[in-house]
Amino acid sequence: MLLLGFTSAVLLLCLFFIIRLYIVVKTGASYKPGSKGRVSVLVVAGSGGHTTEVLHLLQCTSAAYTPRHYVIADTDRMSEEKICTFESLKQQSDSQFTICRVPRSREVQQSWSSSVVSTLNALRYSLPLVFRLRPDMVLCNGPGTCIPLCAAGLLLGILGIKKVLIVYAESICRVQTLSLTGKILYPVSDYFFVQWASLRDKYPKSIFLGRMV
């Protein structure tokens, strides 16, 4: 009887989270960032090309998107310099940004089995970071590091603390298929951008605006 009661409680909790997740994702389309002032942005920068692409995306944003909280992997030694250079060139008097580090979810060529453990470890650091910053929007474009950060943002909405927009822009190198990160975030993202018409045709929820980087 005790086991049955525990199982029922777990099922009800799971049902609650599923319903709340559905509500959070569905209400994202009605939320317009910037309509009520500044937009706090959590930017997930992956190493190499991912960082370059996401900085190109930020070039098109207005001064309303501030402060910008960049999150990079703790083993990434190049992105911080790129971000600081980018911010210095923006030349905005009220420019505000921070750089935070979290453990990488998955290293290159890391096995899938061990990446589950490393992703959970990254989530352990991502949850308190996102709950502390409480951004209006998470902007990412593919690095595995964004999975736990987006999960933390969704949890804020599920718990009714704050609606956090999940904005995903698939890398330009993905022409025919989505990246693994894209496939995971496609159902839960509020805005999902692709840079090739072939992907737009396969994924009807996606938004195609041509080449963005």
Rank of each mutant, 00 (worst) to 15 (best):
Y168W: 06
I23F: 07
S79D: 03
R77E: 15
L55M: 08
E53I: 07
S40M: 02
L139C: 11
D190N: 12
T181V: 15
A73G: 15
G182Y: 00
L159P: 11
R77H: 10
R20D: 09
L58M: 15
Q59H: 02
I161P: 14
S171E: 12
S111E: 11
F193Y: 14
P187V: 00
H56I: 01
T61A: 10
F17V: 13
P33L: 04
T177I: 05
S30K: 04
G160Q: 15
L123T: 05
I18E: 07
L3I: 01
M137L: 15
V44A: 02
T145I: 13
S47N: 05
P128G: 03
N141F: 04
Y168H: 07
I158M: 14
V175T: 14
S206C: 01
L165K: 12
G210E: 04
S114F: 01
V175G: 03
R104M: 14
R211S: 00
V194F: 05
G142D: 14
D190V: 00
E53R: 09
V108D: 08
E81L: 15
Y70E: 11
S115I: 13
F193K: 02
P67K: 05
P143N: 02
F97N: 07
G48F: 06
V108Q: 09
Y168I: 07
Y65W: 11
F86A: 15
A9T: 04
D136N: 14
P135I: 11
Q195P: 03
H69D: 15
H69Q: 12
T181F: 03
V43F: 01
Y191C: 11
F131G: 03
M1W: 06
R132A: 10
P148S: 08
L11G: 01
P135L: 14
L15T: 14
P103T: 03
Q96D: 09
T52F: 12
C84M: 09
S105G: 13
L57E: 10
Q59I: 05
T75I: 12
A122C: 11
S189T: 05
T85N: 13
F208V: 01
P143I: 00
F86S: 13
T7F: 04
V194R: 01
E107W: 04
S95R: 08
S171D: 08
H56D: 10
A169S: 13
Y191F: 04
L123F: 04
Y65H: 12
V213A: 03
H56S: 13
V44T: 06
G157Y: 00
S95H: 05
V71F: 04
I72R: 06
S40I: 02
I99G: 10
S35E: 10
T51G: 04
K36Q: 06
A73Q: 02
V167F: 02
L133S: 12
T145M: 14
K205P: 03
G34S: 11
F131E: 10
S179P: 11
C14P: 04
S113T: 12
H50F: 05
P103V: 08
I23V: 14
L89E: 12
R20S: 12
R101I: 05
R124Q: 14
T51L: 01
P128Q: 07
E170R: 14
Y70N: 05
L180K: 02
T66M: 12
Q59P: 05
G49Q: 07
R211F: 03
G160W: 12
